[in-house]
Design a protein around this nucleic acid. Sequence first.
DNA 1: GAGTTTGAAACT
DNA 2: CAGTTTCAAACTC
Length: 767
Amino acid sequence: MDVVSPELNSLLPDEIMDTEAIIMDDDPPSESPAASGQSQPSDDSPVPMETDVPAVPEIVSLCSDAPPTQLTQAGTTSTPTGSTLSSTLTSTTPKTTSSLSRVSLTSGGLQKLSAPFTLSANHQIILNKVASSPGADTARSQGTTTTTTTPGGQQFMVTTIGKSGQPIVLQLPHTGSKSASVQGLGEAKANPQHFKVVTVSSASQVSTLQAQQLKTVQIAKKTQVSSAGPIKFVFTKAVNNKGLTAQTSVSNVITGRVLSTSSPVTPPRTITLSETLGSSSSSKIAISPLKSPSKLTVVSVASQVPNSPQKSVSLPLNMAHLGHQILLQQSTATSPAKVVSIHSTTMKPVQTVTVGGVGAPQFKTIFPLSTPSNVQQIQVPGSRFHYVRLVTATTGSSTGHASSPITNSSMTAKPMVVNTTQVRMSVPIVPAQTMKQVVPKPLTSSGQVLTTQTQQRLIMPATSLPQIQPNLTNLPPGTMLAPGSGNMGYAVLPAQYITQLQQSAYVTLASSSGFSTPTGIQTQARLPLNGLSTSGAAFRPRKPCNCTKSQCLKLYCDCFANGEFCQNCNCTNCFNNLEHETDRAKAIKACLDRNPEAFKPKIGKGKEGESDRRHSKGCNCKRSGCLKNYCECYEAKIMCSSTCKCVGCKNFEESPERKTLMHLADAAEVRVQQQTAAKTKLSSQISDLLTRTTPAITSGGGRMPYTFVTKEVAEVTCECLLEQAEQAELNQQPQATAERMILEEFGRCLMRIISSAGKTDCPSINC
DNA sequence: GAGTTTGAAACT
DNA sequence: CAGTTTCAAACTC
């Protein structure tokens, strides 16, 4: 799921996006266990999701070091006209490996590279770079597009934007033992199909990515329906950061997008795409803390004809091992139609990913942010984690950065214009809170109700640390995964952080002021604290920490404990940021080692019959009587329970001290609210007054008092008043009469002043 | 704002 | 697991 430029999309007509060409019609799903997950016995029904990709993908790996812009395998011959890129066959299943053929790789239309490839039994194509072609360096930083035509006439288009430096594996889903060439003989022959996968990677990360990183695209299974039917993709991505220690916060980006033509009347079909990074293809990441595949529906629409059918990808999401591999696999029955993608031909697309449980599909959204790297977010149902990939703006801007502006139908997304250094796109911003409200309570495959707690977020490192594999079930809701610095790892970012990014992006981008960085974010919103309501505290400004010695990498730091990055804090030597992912990852691991539930909400639901909210561990107060904010129970506005070990506790239901304090606290809160409201109102009134008076002043239609009540006017007025006083004295009027005469004169003076106020000239006042 | 108190977290 | 230390927030002046 990736950013696909509209230009690239436009190159692929809907009719050529069908998967039929690569699908074996007559292959029973059970023939190839490795690919059985992607194979579907039924044509129209969505392909069941698999949580695993073949441990040993027999595929043709295409190393992205070579800059092929276009790979065309006609199944028979291809004529290399330029520099040649040879690919090695990496298929490990010779039994069903189809014959090799030459692949024509064309870079930018100027170079043609030929590479052998093989379609394995499970329909995987691995294009491996053997050696850099002469033209590789020149084209490395440029987007590349690879188009492969299978012997059966199917065509794949793999586009790489930027320096991916990574081999690409196209894996055809299980189609039985038949070779691809055989497969293509049927319907596919008559109806060549195209698959389009776009990869975008950070050019700055090329050095760390190395050629060992592998992208695998599993093209799922055939369907026998017509080519007009919608296609589903199972998209898997494996990440292995072993040995990679890059510190930069921007990781490589591998984005793939598969477009499928869909007809409103034709049943959806499925394509499995797997993307593997790292040397170890067997390691996998289970995204879903539920340990059961979740459905991920990716809808990306870019540069499509307004009336063109939606192209959606339904993917199951399963993350088993953080930092190794992420598998997005398609689930079976759920329909991708749940996702509504809104596209605009004028705006660059933004990805939207919908993830749902098997039983209860959920909406998930991925959208780019205006951070130095675009952020793609995946919210996994059930855990409410947000898995985010930071997508670096690549240098391959010439190819066009594209994303699909997609909004969830149930979300109130705000369109925004995103400015990156090279990309400007419109992005629907969906606040995390909005998404929370949208996402229904997920169920695991076994029907288990997942936690709905939203109190905490854990920040996990994008980790190049394979050993750090925290149990995702311990991660607090709102956790996000983002790519590690310089590596393909995923960092768990707090949802709040993403929200902040989004907000910042919106402001910055809306003003077209250019790129926005997280550190520059001023608008902060915070998800609720432990046990607190999610509604009221949602976007409340987060309290900055003041850590000095802990580097904000210990639970002393509230930011860290809440799974947030430090932003606008007063901390010193802070490591709680993306720039110190490695250290942060270690710290997180250390915390989890000490307490696997360290990042779980402390305030959870108590036992049955007890209060709804209670402290998981209880407090240990000794001197505060549990009536001060030192006490975590009191701070969370809950009463101490049997789990507490406090001494002299006064934080219980019948405690008069507690009642008094609570009453005072409520009263104080009311006062604060009233004061705040009064200030707001006064400020509004002042602002309104200034707004109304300013034009009058500038236009001459009216003047402020100081403009006409001059010193002279005041002196004259005083003289008039004195004159009245003198006259009253001369006439020996009573004091009351004298005062009345003075006041009446003052009134006349005021009237003259007012009447002359509207005149441009200085008023003249005569007694 | 500086200093003190407090209790959770970290350490031994 | 208990005791001690460290730490940062809460609190007081």
